[in-house]
């Protein structure tokens, strides 16, 4: 296994009396793809929001490559993309760089156009989010995430509401661009077992704890007893017995 890139220790979060995350420990290896799976409403998105800084954990530490607790080079891909409707594709992609970095208009334009070419968005550059397809919106959101050259991208259920064909195209997109740009992925998904095709590690979140962490193949071959209840209905739905 490669070096640990992101290390969570004792991460806890509760909303009122409800414990969502209960002293979670998790290691995310460098340049890997880790997927957190679990039932709906179990706290997968809360985990990502704690890591990204959108929510403040009640306890625990988040360490990046044995350094500080915050994650400066982290990008977040939202379920519904969170693109700005009043900005066109070019402006949406340019936004983080334009607002945070001191770059000339020419350099900004070069960087955005390079990403537009790499993500095959040439025909959409001047269009608004409402005028492009769902798949294109995902690529625009990814381009916006990539413009700051993040070390890790957090994907929050990127295939929510998509049909099976589009789901696979989104997974292909994530795999291909991860290889091309070399970032680490931490993804939350309930698309089991489809997501196993692209992920290096699976972490199963249940009752506030990570109950399983390891390669997806091991999980499929010999799932732990407590995980079988979660896994079997999904596997039997997708792969009906001959």
């Amino acid at each position: 296994m490669s070096d640990t890139f992101l290390q969570l220790r004792g991460l806890s979060k509760r909303f009122g009396p409800q414990v969502i995350l209960n002293a979670i420990d998790l290691d995310i290896p460098l340049n890997s793809h880790t997927t957190v799976i679990g039932r709906s409403g179990i706290g997968k998105s809360v985990l990502l929001k704690c890591i990204s800084g959108l929510l403040k954990p009640d306890a625990g530490t988040i360490r990046l490559s044995n350094s500080t607790k915050s994650i400066p080079q982290c990008a977040y891909m939202f379920q519904q993309n969170a693109l700005f409707d009043s900005l066109n594709v070019f402006e949406n992609i340019a936004l983080p760089l334009r607002e945070k970095e001191k770059v000339s208009a020419q350099r900004l334009s070069e960087q955005v156009n390079r990403l537009i070419d790499q993500l095959d968005l040439q025909n959409a550059a001047t269009k608004y989010p409402a005028e492009i397809s769902g798949g294109m919106k995902k690529r625009v959101a990814l381009a916006r995430a990539l413009i700051t050259k993040p070390e890790i991208i957090l994907f929050d259920e990127p295939t929510t509401g998509l049909d099976p064909e589009r789901k696979f195209s989104v997974f292909d997109m994530i795999r291909n661009y991860r290889q091309q740009f070399g970032f680490t992925v931490l993804m939350v998904s309930h698309d089991v077992p489809e997501v196993f095709g692209i992920t290096d590690q699976v972490a199963w979140l249940d009752a506030g704890k990570i109950r399983y962490w390891g390669p997806p193949n091991d999980l499929l071959e010999s799932p732990p007893m407590e995980l079988a209840g979660f896994l079997n209905p999904r596997l039997s739905t997708d792969k009906p017995a001959a």
């Binding site: 990008a75 977040y76 969170a82 983080p96």
Partner: peptide, 21 residues
């Protein structure tokens, strides 16, 4: 609407101050 569409959260993850923006 921007809050509901997670655009304000997106600004925060991009390290852009939503109040300033």
């Amino acid at each position: 609407i921007q809050r509901n569409a997670e655009q304000i959260d997106a600004l925060q993850t991009m390290n852009i101050n939503p109040l300033a923006f």
